[in-house]
Design a binder for these strands. Sequence first.
DNA 1: CGGCGCTACGTCCGTC
DNA 2: GACGGACGTAGCGCCG
Lengths: 95, 95, 95, 95
Amino acid sequence: MADGAAAIADTSSSAVATGGVAADRLRSFIERIERLEEDKQAIMADMKEVYAEAKGEGYDAKIMRQIVRIRKMDRVERQEQEAILELYLSALGEA
Amino acid sequence: MADGAAAIADTSSSAVATGGVAADRLRSFIERIERLEEDKQAIMADMKEVYAEAKGEGYDAKIMRQIVRIRKMDRVERQEQEAILELYLSALGEA
Amino acid sequence: MADGAAAIADTSSSAVATGGVAADRLRSFIERIERLEEDKQAIMADMKEVYAEAKGEGYDAKIMRQIVRIRKMDRVERQEQEAILELYLSALGEA
Amino acid sequence: MADGAAAIADTSSSAVATGGVAADRLRSFIERIERLEEDKQAIMADMKEVYAEAKGEGYDAKIMRQIVRIRKMDRVERQEQEAILELYLSALGEA
DNA sequence: CGGCGCTACGTCCGTC
DNA sequence: GACGGACGTAGCGCCG
């Protein structure tokens, strides 16, 4: 390892042994990703369930999504406002 | 009827009390969604970490993503094949 | 024309004549796109110029971009708020 | 010093007057940017229209995008070739 | 050359 | 059942 560029192929010693190791390492990464991906899908399924349940009680999913989005935007904007404030402050600090 | 269409508004009794209850219920749904969303974000962050780590060892994230995608498609195809197979089998069982 | 699926290939009569026509039509679309793309690039260049000019007067482009983004978000959010209000109103109207 | 770093704040004389001027100047830049951004959005909308029209006649937008991209690369390459050629020519002229 | 922001693509949902 | 629209995610290009 510690090589970089080569992805998969060589890293150091014998092509065969090394290739095997690299492949195993790669496989490990891939599997970790896939495991996480599964978890993510599970969560997304839960979200769908919640929307479905809400719909079952007469709430409109479209509206709910919009509310979630707006609240998120509020949060994001808040953060950006803070970020910009910080930028201003650091800019002034350097004057 | 349950209520359906009205989202927010009525469910049954007095508009005021009900509005409050409906709002609380809605709030509850929204918060569940937002909680799940957070979890999802956390997982995505983990995935980014994995990609970063892999990159640090010389693997190309873009290629890894392609691999994941292809494997996923394989899985889907496999499932479809199995579904078809099952269909055939049940058809034969019923023949 | 009026066909769909086939992209380029057949549309109706003789492959040659038709192919020629389709190719010409495609070429026309492509060129329109490329013309628009050029215009877009020109505008983006103008924007860069403005940022550069501002920078020349001591304004920080990064901050400016953030301001522009926030203002845009404000606009979008405003619109979404209105959209949601409308949704609520129509939902209530149907109750 | 000219001003530089400070963005917003000082440029020269009294903080108040100057702040106002700087703010106005900044506002002007921001508005120019926003105006250009609008134009850009308009052009992008036009492009979407063209793609939609093409799609309506059976052409695949994704493929068209690829074509545009490839042609653009060709153009860029061509320009680079010419740049190199020019370089050679000027080198010879100066030799 | 690494991070960030914007654009473009694929997916999912609602519609007709 | 297909179409179009909306959303979220992935790729790309610019800036630092």
